[in-house]
Design a protein around this nucleic acid. Structure first.
Lengths: 236, 236
DNA sequence: GTATGTAATTTGTTATAACAAACATCGCGC
DNA sequence: GCGCGATGTTTGTTATAACAAATTACATAC
């Protein structure tokens, strides 16, 4: 992340970096965030029912904030409502997966093209993430590799400094979370040279077209492992 | 809209078109939808505070579902929370407006390219909307013209048959709603030939590249009237 | 008039209770 | 064993109350 001082109120004094504004977080928000990362990490399987009262008991909060957290994720389509009104982890259809891939092609491609102006330190950080991915592949820790891959893509998006775009892309990744865990069921193929390398090289060379193309190739290849784990028809 | 029968449960019998499944709508959802269209129509001005209890009184519901509706719009960034935790209509910054325009260029462009496969009847419907826009311009009813323009773009997106993409674009239009009303403060320029015409022609010819380019030109021209009504710096 | 302190109101947040509908359980009859 | 009905539980939904923090109103002092 970049320094938060840009949007901080002016105090007239230089404060140490670790002095951050204390964000008061409501119970509803905490539950929301915890559920969201669980989804993105693939820790919730499709068709899992998240019943209101058991959930609020697990979180140690009452039904009201729990419901708010669940409904918020429903409105992001990260969760869904079944016929009864119960919250369930949705099952992604093939159509939807293809559509998300197409949208990501556009948006992550644009973010990558915009990211060529990034300071070297941030590109280094991106490369460090990919280095970790390579390590995980070497020791066949596919679960961690998939999560790091998510982090790679979201970090790349943030480099583009388009907050609204980043937020949309993140939403798409959250929606894919529940099936991402399937990616390492069969093991993940290891390309040589990895598309991530081409992305990083393009960023360093400042070539926006190359960056966009590299991202698009990465997205096209990367998602294909998911198709086997997805139904052809939407819902029902 | 297209026929809903595709996702309906199989009854084994042919039902009349007007037989639609009764959707039970919670109070929270109704308040949410009403507020949402009010936003999209530009009926809520930036910086308006939407206090919880007065709002629930106006809607004739209790605080719980009202709060859910408001928080849902907050999570879509169609509304925002101020320092006190009150819900306010956000003020769009120039950065954000430019970013939204860029994203719309990608997404609406893709939708238009995908829409070339649409049946003629639906293209006709799109053209009918533009005809209404032209009429509104003639009688200088700019308020209605702006709302119809929104409808034109969202209808075009739906023609692309990419539901997730449509939903994202709709979100962006909701976020722009509160400043869209400013568009007709100064009157809206009338281009000849109007970019909408080029879009429709491209759809009829089945030329996806032309459709995409026409949409992009429309977006570039159309948004420029907003810049005067937007602040350069984000928030504070 | 201005400042200040206090009381009253209003704010967002959370917990709890009440309600109807859906679901599950169990027992009974055959 | 199988169907069926009564019953008890659990579900989502909504309203209400309690709480603290913030805001406003107002009276008092200077």
């Amino acid at each position: 992340m970049s320094s938060a001082s840009a949007s901080e109120p002016e105090t007239g004094e230089i404060l140490p970096d670790w002095v951050r504004p204390i964000v008061k977080e409501s119970l509803s928000e905490r539950a929301y965030r915890e559920l969201r990362v669980a989804l993105m990490r693939g820790q919730l399987r499709p068709d899992t029912r998240l019943r209101l009262r058991p959930m609020s008991a697990r979180f140690g909060i009452s039904a009201t904030p729990m419901r708010e957290a669940l409904l918020r994720l429903v409105s992001e389509k990260a969760l869904a409502l079944d016929a009864r009104g119960s919250v369930v982890v949705p099952r992604l259809a093939l159509d939807q997966l293809l559509e998300i891939r197409a949208i990501r092609t556009d948006l992550e491609g644009r973010a990558a093209a915009a990211a060529i102006a990034s300071p070297v330190a941030e590109i280094d950080a991106l490369e460090a993430i990919h280095a970790q991915i390579a390590q995980c592949h070497a020791r066949r820790d596919f679960a961690r590799a998939v999560n790091l891959n998510t982090e790679f893509h979201l970090s790349l998006c943030r480099l583009g400094r388009m907050p609204i775009l980043s937020e949309i892309v993140e939403l798409l990744w959250v929606r894919c979370g529940p099936i991402l865990s399937h990616l390492y069921d069969d093991g993940v193929p290891d390309w040589e040279p990895h598309p991530h390398r081409r992305i990083i090289d393009a960023l360093r060379r400042g070539n926006s077209d190359a960056a966009r193309d590299a991202v698009r190739e990465d997205i096209e290849r990367g998602g294909s492992g998911l198709f086997a784990h997805v139904r052809a028809s939407p819902a029902g």
